[in-house]
Computed example of a mutant assay.
Amino acid sequence: MKALLSIRPGGPETLELTEVPTPGPGPGELRVRVLACAINYPDVLVIEDKYQFKPPRPFAPGAEISGEVEAIGPGVDGWNIGDRLIAICSHGGLAEQLIVEAGQAFRLPPGLDPVEGAALVFTYGTTIHALADRAALQAGETLLVLGAAGGIGLSAIEVGKAMGATVVAAVSSEEKAAAARAVGADRTLLYGSGPFDKDGAKALAQAFKEAVGKEGAHVIYDPVGGDYTEPALRSIAWEGRYLVVGFPAGIPHLPLNLALLKSCDVRGVFWGGFMAREPERNRHHIEQLLTWWREGMIRPRIDRRYPLADGGAAIARLASREAIGKVVVQITEF
């Protein structure tokens, strides 16, 4: 089988398309013919050895896939050859075949697009955990979403609306604002590119305050970090919840007096840890997402599709922060 491998630490240009042996499933495992693999920000980091998880080389990046069952390992019930699924794995998705733990696989509902399915679990799973478990978002509350036109930002808009919130989407261009409005954002605001000086940060904080309204944002969803975090925190409501999701713009430094003055919480969101510690609650969340997807309340937006040979370009596209929605590598025709 073919796989796009990280042979040495480096950027997307270091990946090599290579022929490797086809694996066999062990106990509790499925061998899957990969249909599509979505790209996520950890894929940008892991090939540069900048992620907390470092697979032994050579390895294929890619942790989120859709596929068809090709072989079934001992002790696996409920799956048949040819069944379509979506799954999360630690790595290996940029390959024609992949071994998946049966417990990490979810049945792909009939009639739904496997490319969209590959783009569902990582972003929407993170978001439903963040908004339901970490933020306890309530209907009628105001949710501010930073980076709202990326895959995870769009998922936050859709899940927030499904939970009854008023959603304010912060983005960097009018094109991205249009995409946010298209999936349900009630209001949008445009911000510039950091870093910001003192006056720039003050102006951004004021823009956030005006966008969320006098009461402030009850929940702030921040998958961006960097110079955007402190200005956003200044717009939070009394006893609001600030969700720390990711740092593509850098790890911020917060003046904690702001948390005191607003009596607010800064809450970390580590979906991978939640998934490992609370598998049944995570499965319940994914089933809820599949229901919302079937009902048309959410739908993964695909920015671009790439063939396996161009998987490096797909990772570079995500790293550029220009993508609107999810970047997906389609491994095979279906």
Rank of each mutant, 00 (worst) to 15 (best):
G296A: 12
R301K: 13
L233S: 11
G225Y: 01
G272P: 05
R281L: 14
L258R: 03
R241C: 10
A182C: 11
Y228W: 10
N282D: 13
E287I: 06
L233F: 03
I220D: 08
H253A: 02
R304Q: 08
A232Q: 00
V212H: 01
W292V: 12
K209G: 11
P300W: 01
G216A: 02
R305P: 03
V224D: 03
Y221P: 06
P279H: 12
A211N: 12
Y221S: 05
D197G: 01
R241E: 09
P248F: 05
G213A: 13
A182G: 12
E287S: 09
R277L: 13
R267M: 11
Y242N: 05
A211Q: 10
E210P: 03
F247P: 07
P231Y: 01
D265W: 08
P231C: 11
Y228N: 07
G226K: 02
I302E: 06
H218E: 04
A205Y: 00
L261Y: 06
E210I: 12
D222L: 01
R187G: 03
G213P: 08
E210R: 14
M297R: 14
K262V: 15
R299Q: 13
V212G: 04
S193R: 13
G240P: 07
E287V: 10
L290I: 13
F247L: 10
P195R: 03
R283A: 06
N257G: 11
M275V: 12
G200C: 03
D310W: 09
G240M: 02
H285D: 01
A185P: 00
A232N: 00
A182Y: 03
Y242G: 03
L256A: 15
R304T: 14
L256S: 10
L233A: 06
L290R: 11
I220R: 02
P279Y: 09
C264A: 15
K209I: 14
G296W: 10
L204R: 04
A205G: 15
R187H: 05
L289R: 05
V219W: 01
R241T: 15
R234H: 10
P307R: 12
D186I: 05
R187N: 06
A249R: 05
A237E: 09
G192P: 03
Y228A: 12
V183Q: 04
T188R: 00
A259W: 12
G268K: 13
A237I: 05
D186L: 02
G273N: 15
G226H: 04
L308P: 02
L243W: 06
H253R: 14
I236Q: 04
V244L: 02
W238H: 00
R301M: 13
G213T: 07
V212I: 06
P307G: 06
G226I: 01
A217Y: 05
F274S: 07
N257K: 08
A180L: 09
Y191P: 00
R277A: 15
M297T: 14
P223G: 06
Q288M: 15
L260I: 13
R294C: 10
V266M: 14
R277G: 14
G192D: 11
L289C: 08
A207N: 10
A232H: 12
F247Q: 14
G194V: 00
F247A: 13
P300E: 01
A207I: 08
E280C: 03
A182M: 09
G216C: 02
L189Q: 04
E230H: 13
R277V: 08
G272R: 04
